[in-house]
Amino acid sequence: MSTSLAFDLLLAAALLWSAWRTLATPDIFRAAILFIVFGLLLTLAWARLAAPDIALAEAAIGAGLTGALLLDAVGALRARRDSAL
């Protein structure tokens, strides 16, 4: 019981830390990568909360698709900025 509680606390701390880094990192590309990490940690949290359905959806949609959308947007904005210079 206490081991699982300790794991939950550790996971919650990791979630908060990755979210904080996501919002505080000055580099937008790194922020997007950290957001994907945050999504994967969240997947673990859903598994700990006995919600495998949400864990599946979070891994595929929250981390996967949102991450791809973000990285694509970062790439497009950078490409346009670089070509404008």
Binding site: L65, A68, D72, G75, A76, S83
Partner: peptide, 16 residues
């Protein structure tokens, strides 16, 4: 729809 959200967005990569 989920594929479309990505494919419709990614077409404007690069400059206009």
């Amino acid at each position: 729809i989920l594929a479309g959200l990505f494919l419709a967005l990614s077409r404007d990569s690069g400059d206009e």
